[in-house]
Design a protein around this nucleic acid. Structure first.
Lengths: 132, 132
DNA sequence: CTGAATGCAAAGACTTTGCATCAGC
DNA sequence: GCTGATGCAAAGTCTTTGCATTCAG
């Protein structure tokens, strides 16, 4: 049916990719398959998919939201603010932290896609060199 | 000196408040003291203060960034997505998580103001009632 | 005088919305 | 025909930028 053509294209795109994409990146990629697609359709489709819990939306503070498929294997991202590298953090490494919060603060964290900014090892070393 | 009048007004405002404010809220509050102040001045001032590490900027996914004073006592926020309540999470409760990431992933988290979304205890109970 | 901060208005980036149209049931 | 998805264009929101002006030192 027509209703799912855009949704489907997005789902397949995000499933094939393993990283988060901006709406613009998604728009450009989907347009290769559906040349007539409009950007507002992408936004509407993404909203729908987010509502259904099929994609996650995060704001990385860059002005543009990023979208990612919600798979069975939940994970988070460590973003290096110097080299922009994105490192995956397995959910199990955060699960303990989240359950501690539930115990101590009686608060159930729902964030299904945590993004932490900082410095990766290489950039830390590079910065140390610079300081000398 | 003139250079600090806006900066100072913002610092004092954010110090008096204990929560994060949007640039618009800051603009409107500062305008009560400095009626002629321009919104772009607020943005430039906030940039400056963020650069100096005096305020933290976070994106709560609402489209508008929120700003908060960086005090000596670092903390994070748990935001209930149902009742909008904001709970403070002491940094020491997150420090362990961050140092684990440093050990395991060789990544130094710089996020000085983490915002986690989820459900507070009251809302969890309320939702359980609804389900019955 | 010089450099930094400001006001103002315009531009920019990202996203949403109103309305007519179109596909599928 | 009805319902939901789409295209198109306009508007909206938040933020940035260029340029002339103003202030402090």
């Amino acid at each position: 049916m027509r209703s799912s053509s855009t949704d489907l294209a997005i789902i397949e795109l995000l499933t094939a990719q393993e990283k988060h994409l901006t709406s613009l990146e998604i728009y450009e990629a989907v347009r290769r398959r559906l040349p007539a697609v409009n950007q507002s359709t992408i936004y509407r489709s993404l909203d729908r998919l987010a509502q259904l819990g099929k994609v996650s939306v995060s704001d990385m503070g860059t002005g543009a939201a990023v979208y990612e498929i919600v798979g069975d294997h939940m994970h988070h991202h460590l973003v290096c603010t110097r080299c922009e590298k994105v490192i995956t953090l397995e959910h199990k490494d955060a699960a303990n932290f989240f359950s501690q919060i539930l115990d101590k603060q009686d608060f159930e964290v729902h964030t299904n896609h945590l993004i932490l900014f900082g410095l990766c090892g290489e950039c830390r070393k590079a910065l140390e060199m610079e300081d000398e």
